[in-house]
Amino acid sequence: MEITVAELRKAFTKAGYITDEEVLITVYLSLKLEKPLLIEGEPGVGKTELAKVLASVFETELIRLQCYEGLDENKALYEWNYQRQLLKIQISKEAACGDDLEQNLFSREYLLERPLLQAIQSDKKVVLLIDEVDKTDEEFEAFLFEVLSDFQVSVPELGTLQAQQIPMVILTSNNERELSDGLKRRCIYLYLDYPSVEREVAIIQARLPDVGEKLSGEIARAMAVMRADQEIRKKPSVAETLDWAQALLAMEKDRLTDTIIEQTLNLILKSKADQKAFAKNIGSARLAEAARAEK
């Protein structure tokens, strides 16, 4: 696929990812400049989904590195298959062959490739998703931006391994901590916010065409009201919007009423504290009214 903004728009829509010009142009720039794309935003706005869509649009593999506290190079880049090496030593002892054993033990055969190395060594241009990078330690982050600026890694026993194809790199962050300037400098940046009511209606319509236009609008407006409440901690995500729409579809409802909202509230707000905050600040009746009030 030729990389242009228009082509990306077409392909994203075809894949059911409804988005705006800002996202499209930013993704386009990241691809053309071959720079990692750092996406920040609240949980559930579609950061990870963007990487999946890119992989499907370019019909390529998605390699995912899920970050967590304590993630280190061994889990992200490579490690030697220690157990296999030991077995080889045991077998060699009995077979009494040993001259080139050491060389063999540190060959590709004993190398366990982890996501970063897999992406660099892939023959095809892949999408490398480094998910929730804000959960890693600062030292791992420093190591990461070394890899991302040169797209090569050094394995002491094998030498430097250069990327065959520069992967499309997507980093996501929930903004739980500020990432270093070094990492940010190397990336194109995109802040993804919750979709506007109009865009959320379009998303529902694209994913669940059976949900009527009226109900889609009501769902989207209801979601916007809930997300605007400061006391609701876990704001409902786009995935939850779709779950809710699907549930309403299964219940054969075509309008939002306070009773339906009460019956299905636990699909959107999943903690006792959030449900209490909702009851206190908004309430089902007011939400139904706000949802039905078309601008």
């Binding site: 903004v5 010009e21 800002e22 142009i25 930013t26 720039l29 990241s30 750092l38 920040e40 903004n175 500020e178 300037d181 940010k184 400098r185 990336c187 194109i188 940046y189 995109l190 802040y191």
Partner: peptide, 18 residues
Amino acid sequence: DAVRIALKSTLVKRPGEQ
């Protein structure tokens, strides 16, 4: 608008700066 987005995505790297 394209100019705005191009400059924003390359120069602005924090939500508070938007």
